[in-house]
């Protein structure tokens, strides 16, 4: 393992942990603006996480070791996955790190622990949330594989690092393919981060919750860990979308200026994407659970189209 790579690990993890809460608040702010009001400050998630770390962690009397271990395990899986997606600096990958299929399944491991957490306290809403989450996961998994397969076909590699390097060096890629790819990745982003129309992250209706239902019993530092891991997951998927579709500005060399510039550019691109996510969420109502496969089919269809085009053209 080269010194470069260790430096990359530290840098990437630091960046992703520090900027994830910003994007979460920004989406909330955009949604508030569409509702005609000011909304929370863009730094609100930071304040909330800081406060949660100072609160007591209560466990339900029915909770087992799962409730103590799962938040940490979930965060560990997400942080490992964060090493797979370069945000500001693309370097040489080491070992299997960067493999897109492994990335997907690290996210699934995190989701698995979250589902166990929802079941552990024995409450009805946690159970419903877990069961819905696993159903959504089972349906979205093949679609995600096909989308990633499409990525692999377009960039001729299974490694995210190489994909981004290819995206940067190739300049402007074949435009129609990019649009289809962007749509598919955007749908995956919405589904994985449990946003409208799949789930409402700000809902107070316990009977409709998916993601929120699983964390109803969490408090204190466990809640902070779960909220932060969801935020980091969102940033990783945003980075995948941003750095593959609009890769200009990513640092490919180890120089402070390039990396700083890359960070600023990534922040700007992330803010624009947050604006798009917020506006998209505000423009429609939440779909009913059994209608969701229809949405996934769009991503599946576009990705299959890309694969066919790449294979035959």
């Amino acid at each position: 393992m080269s010194a470069d790579f260790v430096l990359y690990c530290i840098l990437n993890t630091a960046v992703v942990v520090l900027i994830s809460p910003l994007f979460v608040s920004l989406v909330k702010k955009v949604k508030a603006w569409t509702q005609g009001r000011q909304g929370p400050s863009v730094f609100q998630t930071y304040y909330t996480l800081a406060k949660l770390l100072r609160k007591e962690t209560i466990y339900s009397p029915h909770a087992s070791w799962v409730s103590r271990v799962a938040p940490v395990a979930c965060m560990a899986a997400i942080l490992t996955a964060s090493l797979f997606v370069p945000l500001v600096w693309v370097t040489e990958p080491y070992g299997g790190i960067g493999n897109i299929i492994l990335f997907l399944y690290l996210l699934v491991v995190a989701r698995f622990f979250m589902a166990l957490l929802g079941l552990d306290a024995g409450s009805a809403f946690g159970g419903m949330g877990s069961s819905r989450e696993m159903s959504v996961s089972a349906v979205i998994e093949p679609t995600t594989i096909v989308v990633f397969a499409a990525l692999a076909f377009v960039f001729k590699t299974l490694n995210i690092f190489d994909m981004m390097a290819a995206a940067v060096s190739a300049g402007t890629l074949k435009t129609p393919i990019l649009i289809l790819l962007a749509i598919s990745l955007f749908i995956i982003l919405i589904v994985e981060t449990s946003r409208i129309p799949v789930d409402n992250p700000e809902t107070h209706l316990e009977l409709t919750m998916i993601h929120e239902g699983m964390i109803l019993e969490q408090s204190g530092k466990n809640l902070a860990l779960m909220e932060l891991s969801a935020a980091i997951k969102q940033t990783l998927l945003m980075a995948l979308l941003i750095n593959l579709i609009v890769p200009w500005g990513i640092a490919t060399t180890l120089s402070a200026a390039a990396i700083l510039a890359a960070l600023v550019i990534f922040l700007v691109k992330g803010c624009v994407l947050s604006l798009v996510i917020g506006t998209f969420e505000s423009s429609m109502a939440k779909m009913r659970f059994f209608r969701l496969p229809g949405l996934f089919m769009m991503a599946f269809f576009f990705s299959t189209l890309i694969v066919i085009i790449e294979v035959f053209a």
Binding site: K28, R37, P40, S41, Y47, T48, T203, E212, L216
Partner: peptide
Amino acid sequence: ERFGIAFVA
């Protein structure tokens, strides 16, 4: 919400 006050479930 702009004051940092949130109603939680």
